[in-house]
Write a protein that binds this DNA or RNA. Structure first.
Lengths: 344, 344
DNA sequence: CCCCCTCAGGTAAGCGCTTTCCTGGCAGGC
DNA sequence: GCCTGCCAGGAAAGCGCTTACCTGAGGGGG
């Protein structure tokens, strides 16, 4: 593998000159030399060793992103926003999938720290696990203290700037919409119990219930994995346990799609016999049948804002916290229960 | 930021000892020293500089992955497979999105080369652009000559091992299925012209047409972006230009989903008045209405195999080429044209 | 005509680690 | 009791770059 020194030797100049030319440093270099060096670079197919450059320079360029799983549309959308901003700033982004394993998340923070990334963006639900949360926070603080920037999405509890999706208000919106339509027996398809996203959204739903004079009993809430199959299983459980249900609220769209599959299998018409509302508004939600009513979170924008925070220049004062508004999107999967008229 | 030397000083030992303890090198170290060093590491919150480590060690650990766009389900699935294998091997994977820009792809090869990744996996369609292809190939070869491994998915034309999805046979499968059902006027919703994936799949379709005594005229093929909106637009174009169409073949599932939306808007029943077949079998394909008939490509498995090739040990002989079989999956979106009976 | 300033280009000191090779102390063998 | 062998631990040489600082040549002014 050719090195800077090889190029310098070949061109008959010092390594300093080669370095200057390659990085087109402001220091002037005679045109003749430049050409000779460039020729040598081409001949030797020289590619500078980024690790050596990184070590020699002081600056940090790459940024790290830790998500649960990029192949999940929720994170895919966020990541798209993150990427766009990073690319606009000329930054390489390193994407790490924690696959919802907190230990892996911790390991990735260390890894990104070790790689001298300029910033770490942590996306995805927090965990109801105090020791883990504390350890993660400690690592993030250490990283910050060595000059790294931190931006979190959700997970307001951690160090660094934050973009906080309105999960609780969103849950409220979903619940309120259902109750307003006249539903009284609502089942909740929830994500894993230990995720804060689950509890936040659920809290909003409960608030709506309370406000409308209802409550959500334990059997009306089914916890499962935050994906299609989880939603399908949870829907089945709910249907079994609560024969009188007229509406289902899923805590994300993937689960809602799974629930839709379950309903279809059982020949339960949506929204005729059962209303269904999701959460997130993934791109695909408009293409299922019926198109999914849901609570929209501006996912790509969340990514954009998080990366903008992570990359912002200037002094580090108090961490910035921005909120990302949830918005109700009614499509075809919700309606008033049979034989009812929705209240205004 | 604490360095190895700081830790050594603090613990009253040499940097060599600290390094040995941290990397638990086989060289024995007295228990007392070990404890002192570990204590110092904790107190100083030392995190080794990965760039320095990388530079000092000879080995390459990370692997790079270049895809068009991870947020596209096609690549998301492949990436999942890639990740799994890499993680099993204890490798960090760096994911790079080219967003279908060949120049960016070239830049990423250099970047991954510069970062001393052990391997580069290049996924996603090739381009019908000889100069670009040649430049990419040259870069890949240089990278290989410096000890890097290369594995490509599709893009058989490049250096390195390859996993080749059966695009042409898959296209044939889709076409054959439609003709067998009795369709004679088929429209093709194609991806961008300059992508080899488009032309390969289209070639299979044409072969099927020919075999059944038909042909695909220019107006029967609409080119658009390889995504939902592209599919929707292309479907509209096709419907306008060919009133007699009874079936649509989309060159990927995203486009098929878009076509479905177009058909729905126009009140054209699928499969009653129009059959539709996709390609890839994305996870969501089963959840649209009607569930999409498609040509299944084992995407995650393709990722697994590509990464296995990229990480394989041993001498580098002739590049290995593996094929990933396409399989027809008939679901609800295809049927015999009205008033016809499908041929056996 | 000489001195000094200017500036292109080189020298070399790191950047933070790993690892080879060396040292010094101790135990065991004759 | 001395020599040899062994072993824990340290010194130092890199790894491939960047860059502050130095040098020497050329030009202009006094």
């Amino acid at each position: 593998m050719a090195t800077l020194a090889d190029v310098a030797r070949r061109a008959g100049v010092s390594t300093a000159t080669v370095s200057r030319i390659i990085n087109n440093s402001p220091k002037p270099v005679a045109e003749a030399l430049r050409e000779r060096v460039l020729a040598a670079v081409a001949e030797l197919q020289f590619v500078p060793n980024a690790n050596a450059q990184q070590l020699a320079r002081a600056d940090r360029t790459a940024v790290g992103v830790i998500v649960h799983d990029v192949s999940d549309p929720y994170f895919a959308e966020i990541t798209r926003g993150l990427q766009r901003v990073a690319t606009d700033h000329g930054r390489l982004v390193i994407i790490c999938n924690s696959y919802r394993d907190p230990e892996r998340e911790l390991a990735y923070v260390d890894l990104l720290h070790a790689h001298q990334t300029a910033a770490i963006v942590l996306a995805g639900s927090g965990y109801h696990d105090a020791p883990i949360t504390a350890r993660l926070d400690a690592k993030l603080r250490i990283y910050e203290s060595t000059g790294g920037r931190v931006a979190v999405i959700g997970r307001h509890e951690h160090a660094g700037d934050a973009v906080v999706p309105e999960n609780e208000p969103g849950g409220y919106l979903a619940g309120d919409a259902l109750y307003r339509l006249g539903h009284t027996a609502i089942g909740v398809i929830a994500g894993p119990r230990h995720l804060t996203t689950t509890t936040d959204r659920l809290a909003g739903l409960r608030r709506a219930a309370k406000e409308h004079g209802h409550r959500l009993t334990a059997r009306q809430v089914a916890y499962a994995d935050f994906d299609r199959n989880g939603g399908r299983a949870a829907a089945a459980t709910l249907l079994e346990a609560n024969p009188g249900l007229t509406a289902l609220a899923a805590l994300n769209d993937s689960m809602a799609v799974g629930a839709l599959a379950c309903l279809r299998e059982r020949g339960i018409d949506v929204p005729g016999r059962m209303s269904l509302i999701g959460f997130d508004d993934m791109p695909i939600s408009v293409d299922v049948t019926p198109p999914l009513s849901t609570v929209r979170l501006p996912l790509e924008e969340i990514g954009v804002r998080a990366m903008s925070l992570a990359l912002r220049e200037g002094e580090r004062g108090a961490p910035l916290v921005e909120h990302a508004a949830a918005r109700l999107v009614l499509r075809g999967s919700t309606a008033a229960p049979r034989g009812t008229r929705s209240r205004p």
